[in-house]
Amino acid sequence: MKEKVLLIIPAYNEEENILRVCKEVEEKNPKIDYVVINDGSKDNTLNVLRENNLNHINLIHNLGIGGAVQTGYKYALENDYDIAIQYDGDGQHDVQYVDTICKPIIKKEADFCIGSRYLDENTSEFKSTFMRRLGKNIISFIIKLFWHKKITDPTSGFRAGNRKVIEEFASDYPSDYPEPESTATLLKLGYKVTEKPVNMRERVAGKSFVTIGTSTLYMIKVSLAIIVDSIFRGKNKKK
């Protein structure tokens, strides 16, 4: 790979995971750079990052996952990276699959590649609950309905984008639960989006973002965002 690749690793209260995640990246895939975005963690994350000299940006105030990831895209833009990959700071993602999701972009087959847990059931050891599947299916259905593209894992946080996508996301990225909405935006603007099967693990330590209570609200917000976006699709077309 001659492309400059950046892993964007958003971290909020990940003191138990972040060092292990970064070391894994350094060991298994030393050619790629990473930047940890510390999203105003209340625990010891910042100290862990400083002491171990891990490349990081410290947000001066908590922004939520969307704002944190967008900061990563801005960093990628400023430092002229060719490919930016979103990568969770909690150890769910497997760094071996970075090359897998980069491949379609390097070959210029796609602008954006999502690492999917559901594309090939055998690859993934990720255990999915009924509710999770239901939610995922509803979002997939809505995206299919409006943008005629089947996305098997719209909530995946393991995604790679090329230079054009980096520019797009650096200037505009949704804030609360951004994965499905940003995918829909890319489809709307005519970017080529593809998926590759990846393995995801269950979280090793720490607490997950999404709980049962918030997931219903999540569904409503995501659906609304995608639907509103497509109803007014003519109005905010990009240059």
Binding site: N58, I60, L63, K74, Y75
Partner: peptide
């Protein structure tokens, strides 16, 4: 917040 944090970096 984003721009200030990037600048600090």
């Amino acid at each position: 917040v984003q721009e200030v944090s990037l600048l600090k970096k």
